[in-house]
Simulated assay, not measured.
Amino acid sequence: MSNALRIAPEKTTVDTGVRDTETVAKGLADVLADTYRLMFKTHAYHWNVEGPLFFSIHNLTEAQYEELFKAADVIAERIRALGLLAPWSLDWLKEQSVIGTPDAAPTAGEMLEDLAGDHERLAHRLHALINMTGDIDPVTEDLAVARSSVHEKAAWMLRSLGKE
């Protein structure tokens, strides 16, 4: 095996002036866990939704899970830019996430309400990250502000679509 293939990932010293990178990375990792779980749930609802609003919900959830997948990469890369390792265990992501899984197949309306609530939970976590990073890491703060805006808009759109 080539020596190039024997290199394992490890923490790196990145000195950009960010204080307490471990705490910031932990906050980002929690958001990453929620983002990944919400991405999967959104994708599962996309596959399984039925009813008269099928097309609307199917298309909205597709746009949302694609956006969440891209966001997960940005969040993980921010953790690496801070010099720490991004999570690589699905078990860990599941344990850290505040996003739940329904016990039974929900109705289309329940799917919309469930996803809206999850987007709100993620926005709350991002608001906490914004408060934590405001004075110590403006780059992560900016990322969290942008992500929070996406989740707030998603919750509004999902709830608006679910009105009778």
Rank of each mutant, 00 (worst) to 15 (best):
N3A: 11
A4N: 11
R6G: 13
K11I: 07
D15A: 11
T16F: 10
G17T: 07
D20F: 06
E22L: 09
A25K: 03
G27I: 00
D30W: 02
L32Y: 10
A33Y: 05
Y36F: 07
R37Q: 05
M39H: 09
F40P: 03
F40C: 10
T42K: 09
Y45I: 00
Y45C: 03
E50A: 13
P52I: 11
S56L: 12
H58E: 05
E62M: 08
A63W: 03
E67I: 01
A71L: 09
R80H: 11
A81S: 15
L82V: 03
W88T: 14
S89R: 15
K94E: 14
K94G: 12
E95I: 02
P102R: 13
P106W: 07
T107S: 15
G109W: 01
G109P: 05
L112H: 05
E113S: 14
L115S: 08
A116E: 06
H119I: 01
H119N: 15
L122D: 00
N131R: 10
M132A: 07
T133W: 01
D137C: 08
D137T: 06
P138T: 04
V139R: 02
T140S: 13
L143K: 05
A144I: 00
V145E: 02
V150N: 09
H151W: 06
E152G: 08
E152V: 03
A154D: 00
A155V: 05
A155Q: 09
A155E: 09
R159S: 12
K163V: 06
K163S: 10
